[in-house]
């Protein structure tokens, strides 16, 4: 490592500020990825700002409250809580490396 060109950590104690990616690209921890069926998803299919339970329950805050609903796969750890909570079962968990099907 080139120690001369590195910006030094001047903090006296260990700390970090809240920032996207502070904990690294956590998406590469994922074994299963969520796949949304937008025909079933309530806000996506009805074109209304409704439901968004996936956004509410996501522990990583990677679901975007948008139409259509989007998930930031760089940081989604694949826990599957969104799929579990989705009222119309619009989200399926698919093993990484396999097709969306």
């Amino acid at each position: 490592m080139d120690e001369k060109n590195v910006k030094r950590d001047l903090n006296v104690s260990a700390l970090c500020v809240p920032a996207k990616g502070e904990a690294g690209r956590t998406g590469d921890w994922r074994d299963f990825r969520p796949v949304i069926d937008h025909k079933k998803c309530i806000p996506s299919s009805k074109n209304k700002a409704a439901c968004f339970l996936c956004w509410l329950y996501c522990p990583e805050g990677v679901v975007k409250m948008s139409i259509p609903v989007e998930i930031d796969m760089d940081y989604c750890k694949g826990c599957g809580i969104c799929a579990e909570e989705c009222p119309p079962n619009a989200i399926r968990m698919v093993r990484e490396g396999e097709n969306d099907g």
Binding site: R8, A14, L15, G21, E22
Partner: peptide
């Protein structure tokens, strides 16, 4: 707001601003 004394890994790690954190 800050996170104080979160888990530090055995290695040094750059933060999103590019500072190599201890």
């Amino acid at each position: 707001p800050r996170t104080i004394n979160s888990v530090l890994f055995p290695w040094r790690r750059p933060n999103p601003e590019g500072v190599l954190c201890d």
